[in-house]
């Protein structure tokens, strides 16, 4: 049936080029102390397209972490299936700390609600090295829209809203809100944030739920009006905009990014990496990057992070179940 032997490919990919390199380098003792880590460049895989938010933040943190780590971080993009392609490859590789990757919350908490994949990567396969950002979703309408507030919009007879794609936080947040409000709303998934925002600018739809980074330039230019944020507390970038929770809808959806390694990476190695990234997060340039890209910090220890991710997955699943939603068509 399957013309492409994926298992074989993954097994092939398992031996990373750097592992081969290590095999060639015959230097030092046979098994030098673990504390030597890192002896060479660390491969930092970004399982997303170049130029997107995930790519930009990875490059920013990688640059900041090189000095504290004492080695360079080689950023490689390996996009596909909201990060699943890259993370599966990470898991097939060696757990020696020389391969790490960026991961996002939506892959573990939202994608499973839309896409049925029996071989999906689960969070227990991974060890969280460090947590990075928390990016809120915001509901925006056109500046010329008659809807001034969330109440106005929810009083409408019917609403067409754009989302940035199937199985995204954008879709989940908007669906939960509109179903909760019990109004007749049609979900129109677009191909990414830019095309969803374009549709709203052209007034093809009444509203869009998208991340701050995707909407803030237009908000600041006065073209779009934010009417609700889907975070627990108000966003520091939009102090005047109420949360959906304030309006009486228990919808909290955000995107969080963090760095992972395979679960069985040695503790000491993981510790070295974690320390380097923690120091990198304090850098001024990285701070400025977050500010410019409307990203909030999410800096917790890996136990708390793991708890958050599994709780979010369970919570979203329950919410979707209660509301009788169908994100995709598959699951």
């Amino acid at each position: 049936m399957n013309p492409f032997p994926r298992r074989g490919l993954l097994a092939a990919a398992a031996v990373s080029p750097f592992a081969a390199l290590a095999a060639c380098q015959v230097q030092g003792g046979a098994d030098a102390a673990e504390s030597d880590f890192p002896k060479r460049a660390v491969d930092f895989m970004v399982p997303f397209d170049p130029g997107g938010s995930g790519d930009l933040i990875s490059r920013a943190i990688a640059k900041a972490a090189e000095e504290p780590l004492g080695q360079s971080l080689a950023v490689t993009n390996k996009p596909g299936a909201n990060g699943a392609v890259g993370l599966k490859e990470l898991l097939a590789g060696k757990a020696d700390g020389y391969s790490i990757a960026l991961a996002v919350k939506s892959l573990f908490a939202i994608t499973p609600l839309a896409v049925d994949d029996p071989e999906a990567v689960i969070i227990d396969d991974l060890r969280i090295i460090t947590t990075l950002t928390n990016e809120a979703y915001v509901l925006v309408v056109h500046a010329d829209s008659p809807y001034q507030t969330l109440e106005d919009l929810l009083a409408a007879d019917s609403v067409n809203y754009a989302t940035t794609g199937v199985g995204t936080g954008s879709q989940l947040s908007a669906q939960l809100l509109f179903t909760g409000a019990g109004i007749d709303a049609t979900d129109v998934p677009f191909d990414g944030g830019a095309s969803a925002v374009t549709a709203l600018l052209g007034q093809e739809v009444d509203a869009v739920s998208a991340s701050l980074a995707e909407t803030m330039p237009q908000v600041e230019a006065g073209e779009l009006r934010p009417i609700a944020v889907f975070s627990e507390e108000r966003s520091p970038f939009l102090q005047d905009v109420p949360t959906a929770v304030e309006a009486g809808f228990d919808v909290v959806v955000d995107q969080r990014r963090f760095i992972v390694a395979p679960a069985d990476v040695p503790d000491e190695t993981a510790g070295v990496l974690s320390l380097a990234f923690e120091e990198a997060r304090e850098g001024a340039e990285y701070g400025q990057f977050l500010q410019d890209n409307y990203m909030d910090r999410w800096e917790v220890d890996n136990l708390e992070a793991k708890t958050h991710l599994s709780e979010a997955a369970a919570e979203y699943a329950a919410l979707v179940e209660d509301a009788g939603l169908q994100l995709g068509d598959g699951a």
Partner: peptide, 20 residues
């Protein structure tokens, strides 16, 4: 790849290499 509006896998033969 995945259906653009519903996320249903189409002709992907079970591999997420073809999901996009």
């Amino acid at each position: 790849g995945l259906d653009p509006l519903l996320g249903t896998p189409r002709f992907t033969f079970g591999t997420d290499q073809l999901a996009d």
